[in-house]
Design a protein around this nucleic acid. Sequence first.
DNA 1: CATAAGGGTTCCAGTCACGGGAAGGTCAAG
DNA 2: CTTGACCTTCCCGTGACTGGAACCCTTATG
Lengths: 128, 128
Amino acid sequence: MNIGDVSRRSGLPAKTIRYYEDIGLVTPQRSENGYRAFRDSDLHKLAFLGRARTLGFSIEDCRTLMALYEDGERESAQVKAVAQQHLDEIDAKIAQLESMRDTLAHLVHCCAGDSRPDCPILSDLAAG
Amino acid sequence: MNIGDVSRRSGLPAKTIRYYEDIGLVTPQRSENGYRAFRDSDLHKLAFLGRARTLGFSIEDCRTLMALYEDGERESAQVKAVAQQHLDEIDAKIAQLESMRDTLAHLVHCCAGDSRPDCPILSDLAAG
DNA sequence: CATAAGGGTTCCAGTCACGGGAAGGTCAAG
DNA sequence: CTTGACCTTCCCGTGACTGGAACCCTTATG
């Protein structure tokens, strides 16, 4: 498989796949013409990575998860710990965004949004 | 005021204040010794920027909001439009994170987290 | 046979909003 | 005179790519 095929099948842009090779997440072989030659196992890995990234795991987390996936001796507790920590971070991020949203929604609600200059949004930003 | 004073009063790191000068958000004067000399109006601007950033506005949005704030001829509709768009983006981000959280929470819940290798988290990532 | 299209390759620069750290100038106190 | 707390500029690094330039390989067509 060339990179285009793998890109279509995994849903990852070719650029991303090259980047993943750069940082050592996949190591495709090379054809005589210099093209990357992906095996099924490479495609499988890339699909795995794509799904992990979709769940918001960092590249380093993905590296860890891949290593655990390939390690028959792993303990599921290790995987769960990584996932739980990520979950906590997501919860924190959501809480932060919701706080922003609440403040902002209130301000937007209070702003007339007409042709006059008076604006509670700017007043709030100016005054704290 | 030197940058340290402004930093303490605005809550912004000195590094950030220098960066804001770099990109033209504030233009403090200079003392004879080369130190930045901030006026009250500069401090006020920086506090404004700090609060806007706290609400998650991008630097470019902040630039726009500052310009509107300083424009006596502004229409509140312009401000509201910027804020509403940002609010929409926040809502989208929250929705995305919640989707991640739901999937992830389910997987974490299903994972035994013990010393055995079987793990539904890895199975899900591997199989889609 | 020339060429054009549609692959592939490398490498460099840019993104966003700063933060870290080096190398050095300035100022008030002891 | 030295110490220490300031301040200055400059350059590199962050995360996870994305865009683009300049170039090579393969296949089909006039």
